Simulated assay, not measured.
Amino acid sequence: MKNTLKTLAFGVIGILVLSFTTMKTEKKNIKIESSKVVWKGYKVTGSHEGTITLKSGSLSFEKEKLTGGEFVIDMTTIASTDLSGEYKGKLEGHLKSDDFFGVEKFPTATLIFTNVKAKGKNSYTITADLTIKGKTNPVSFEISIYGNKATTSLKVDRTKYDVKYGSTSFFDGLKDKAIYDEFDLVADLEF
């Protein structure tokens, strides 16, 4: 009888341990060299676009379902791809200046997922904390994952991060010098 009780007790303990064991999270690092982040900013008279490099990044999965992510963006790498020569250099210098992203003082920006909700088999709705110039605000966007690749795009309101240059939300009389508050980020990631 004692052996039967011991066996039963160990069985119950085993079931309880298995029931309360958390799923293993697998962190997959982003391959920086084969991933790409493109930005596009808009103004009354047109737009500019370019690239920016990730410093590091990872996506977290539980049983192949996305559960988290975190990224560090190297703001010193912001580059224009729609201009060349003197104008390319001027725009890149201005974007790196305190008028825009102040990269000398704020060389990185971060994006940390705070909520991941499955939208479909390979699609998720993400809420994340985006930090630019030391200011953190929530952003929401969709991300799609196929195999070892992920794609996403998000709109960012630059004025929430103290990037006010040329914004009609803060300055009057800009006319055709106005720059729209929102810019786009499009990321093609490989992990």
Rank of each mutant, 00 (worst) to 15 (best):
K2N: 12
L5Y: 14
A9T: 14
V12P: 11
G14P: 02
G14V: 03
S19C: 13
S19M: 14
T25M: 04
K27P: 09
N29V: 13
I30T: 13
S35Q: 06
W39R: 07
G41C: 02
G41M: 06
T45E: 09
S47C: 10
E49L: 11
G50D: 05
S58V: 01
K63N: 15
K63I: 12
E64R: 06
L66R: 00
L66T: 00
G69Q: 12
G69C: 07
F71H: 04
V72P: 06
M75A: 10
T76S: 12
T77F: 01
T81E: 01
L83W: 07
G85V: 01
E86V: 12
G89V: 08
L91T: 05
E92F: 00
H94A: 01
K96Y: 04
D98T: 14
D99E: 13
D99I: 03
F100E: 02
F101G: 01
P107R: 05
V116M: 02
K117G: 04
K117V: 14
S123H: 11
T127S: 14
G134M: 03
T136D: 09
T136I: 10
P138S: 14
P138G: 10
F141S: 05
E142S: 13
I143W: 10
I143Y: 09
N148Y: 00
T151K: 13
L154A: 06
K155H: 10
V156E: 01
V156L: 06
R158I: 09
T159G: 00
D162G: 12
V163N: 02
Y165I: 09
Y165A: 07
G166P: 07
G166K: 00
G173M: 03
G173Y: 06
L174C: 02
K175L: 15
K177M: 11
I179F: 05
D184W: 05
D184H: 11
L185C: 03
A187I: 11
